[in-house]
């Protein structure tokens, strides 16, 4: 039942995007998202579309994987489109009018603009999650937040990264365990499927309590094991793998800066 649930959505293949330094990838993603919002007109937006499309092609992840992501957010897209069409009532060209509903050309354009924006956001985020393992992401976040140690927050950053690592490590373990508990409770005659929402929530209790109990016991064991391996927080700790940016990272960043500059110029000129 839960075994189909996979952690993150890393798509294992080798591509330029896969091999980028995860810190660069993460920062590039943040800037691309920012610039998707900066776009003032369709011309600028088309530049971003081209950028996202190229990133998707370079990632070597099949398009159906991306489509799957879009399917999930379809309701939000439709909702946004309708809302924008109805709310924007400016412009002379009225396409459709009935009772209190008026749809203008401007409204349709605005809706299209918003929809493209959302789609781009989802697609470019998917490029990151398909090409970067959760571990790489955690390392990137820890490394990027390192400057916070000058504010005395170094240990906090390390602790958060360690918590992320441990969570990622234990999600499959606890998923397996949940499956086992569900089977065990079913074998004892527990009814998990029928009834209204309230009785379904109630039926979850016999699953959640043993799960919580076992998670705490595991945490206790893990703490012992970490103690035994001389863990004492982030202080004095080194890493085996150092993230080292290469030519790919600088080249992609340069390309992005050019595109961003173009977006600003196009936004001003047209």
């Amino acid at each position: 039942m839960l075994s189909s649930f996979t952690l993150g959505q890393y798509y294992n293949t080798t591509s330029v995007i896969h091999r980028l330094d995860p810190r660069f990838k993460l920062l590039q993603l943040i800037f691309i998202i920012a610039f998707i919002f900066v776009c003032k007109n369709f011309f600028a937006l088309f530049l971003m579309c081209a950028l996202v499309l190229i990133a998707m092609l370079l990632s070597k992840v099949p398009f159906r994987m991306y489509l799957r992501n879009l399917k999930v957010i379809l309701p939000i897209v439709v909702f946004t489109a309708i809302l924008n069409m109805l709310y924007v009532n400016q412009g002379e060209v009225v396409l459709f009018s009935w009772w209190i509903i008026t749809v203008t050309l401007d409204g349709v354009l605005k809706a299209a603009f918003m929809v493209i924006r959302i789609l781009l956001l989802i697609l470019i985020s998917a490029v990151l999650t398909y090409t970067t393992t959760p571990t790489e992401l955690t390392d990137a976040i820890e490394s990027l937040l390192k400057p916070l140690k000058f504010l005395g927050l170094g240990e906090l950053v390390h602790t958060l990264a360690m918590m992320m690592t441990i969570s990622l490590r234990f999600i499959p373990t606890l998923t397996d365990e949940t499956d086992k508990i569900i089977s065990a409770q079913k074998a004892r005659g527990a009814d998990l499927e029928s009834g209204n929402i309230l009785s379904k929530i109630k039926a979850l209790l016999p699953i959640l309590i043993p799960l919580l109990f076992s998670a705490i016991r595991r945490a206790d064991d893990l703490a012992d094991a970490m103690d035994c391996r001389c863990y004492s927080g982030g202080k004095g700790r080194t890493r085996m793998k150092k993230l080292v940016p290469g030519a790919k990272d600088y080249i992609t960043t340069t390309i992005l800066i050019v595109v961003f500059a173009a977006v600003i110029v196009v936004g001003k000129v047209f």
Binding site: T133, P134, T135, T165, I166, L168, R169, T173, R218, D221, L222, A225, M226, R229, C230, Y231, S232, G236, R237, T238, R239, M240, K241, K242
Partner: peptide
């Protein structure tokens, strides 16, 4: 319990966990 003493999500990174705590050179 082997499940409760592995800290990292990749085998070699987990093996590195101890030496990393000792502050050794990469």
């Amino acid at each position: 319990n082997p499940d409760n003493q592995i800290v990292c999500t990749v085998v070699e990174e987990d093996v590195a966990f101890g030496p990393e705590n000792l502050g050794l050179e990469p």
